[in-house]
Simulated scan of single mutants.
Amino acid sequence: MMAPSRRRPDAADTAILAGYLVIAAALGYLSVESTIATPLWPLVLLAIAGTVVILISRRRPAVALGAAIVLMLASFAVGSGAEAALVIAGLYRAGVRDSRGAWIAFGWAAAGGTAAALMLALRVRSGPPLLGLAPRADAAAWATDWLSITVVVLAASLIATLLGINAGHGRRQAAALAERAEHLRRERDQEASIAAAAERERIAREMHDVIAHSLAVMVALADGAQASVNARPDEAHRAIGRVSETGRRTLGEVRRLLTAVRDERDAAPPAEAPRVERIPALVDEFRAAGIPVRLEQTGTLTEGAAVSLTIYRIVQEALTNVLRHGRGVRDVLVQLVFSRSEVTILVKDVAAPADPAAGAGRGLVGIRERAAFYDGSVEAGPVAGGGWRVFVRLSTEDQ
């Protein structure tokens, strides 16, 4: 799409060409008809050369401006002076493109204009009247003519340069604003993409914690119910009830997560996210599943603290790992210590020696990711004599 516009003159080039030909025809007629009697052939050659300059000005602006200055010198010497309009147009375009380059172009045009004014003054002084100027015989009058023509040429060149710089500044400013708006749009889209990815990762962690924990508890309760259905039917019945209760609660939490993803306005109000206050109930669930869990808590957490959900999920994931991977678990300690600037979480079980592959799954990865969000640290590994230990430290200074 850009190649044709570079080969053919656009509307501005057409307007400049039309204006130049009109000026060249008018001044050429006056020059031919005056007593100075300018020959027709240099006017025609200058007009042809001026047309070529206009046609190449968009592709080769510097070359076109240099050629226009040369044509102005020739025109003031043997022509009508119409080619000065080419220099004016070139200076305006130079200002539109670049202010620094415009002043360089003005310097060259000023030098060429001064020389052209000298040629015209010599021509007027040595020949018949030109455009109403009478010949001068004395040097003072000749110098006055030269100075007057020079001032007019320089003033016209300066005005064209300043107008071009002003117009170019407005265009460059508009282009800069458009570029900045586009940059901000791309930056906003990128931030939205990053936020969406982070939200998907958060929801994936939540789904893993909820489903893995609930399924592990339900499997343990179902196994216990199956083992005791004949010998202790009442206990088996209670275990089946807990399976049902755990399943309903899991469905509620999954529905809450999916509602957040789909942003359903007409959906039922989602279940409240679990917090530290529900950890005793969580411990009871694991006790019902056959894990001997003890809970120790020192201090209290600020009400409404954002870290509350993270603490709950870390304890839930650590206990789920005990339920899934622990063998012969004899005791599990959940210790929470709340201070003004940090929270420490310890989940330690006493059991048979751990499988070397334990702890390599996504559970510990999720714990580390949650802790990193609060500038925390995680220590996890087997303990001497058998069992597993998870120790998490979270910073709450900004809570």
Rank of each mutant, 00 (worst) to 15 (best):
A24D: 12
A384G: 13
P4I: 05
L184C: 04
E264V: 05
W108I: 01
S157C: 14
S5W: 14
R7G: 13
Y20F: 13
V44Q: 04
I314S: 01
R232Q: 09
A352V: 12
G19T: 02
P4Y: 08
I311H: 07
E191Q: 11
L258P: 06
L17E: 02
M72W: 00
R185T: 01
P353N: 03
E245H: 00
R58S: 10
L21E: 03
V229M: 07
L30V: 01
L73A: 02
E33F: 14
S99K: 09
V32G: 11
R242P: 04
S214L: 02
G299K: 07
A197I: 13
Q297W: 05
A281V: 11
V152D: 01
V44F: 07
A289I: 06
R97S: 13
R262M: 09
A372P: 11
G381E: 06
A236D: 08
L46Q: 09
A216W: 03
V347P: 04
N230A: 15
V350D: 14
L46S: 11
I159C: 03
A82G: 03
S34D: 00
G386H: 10
R255G: 00
G28S: 02
A134S: 09
A62W: 07
E342K: 07
L133V: 12
A216C: 12
E199F: 13
A222S: 15
V378M: 04
D398M: 04
A140W: 03
L133T: 05
S5L: 15
S214P: 10
P128I: 10
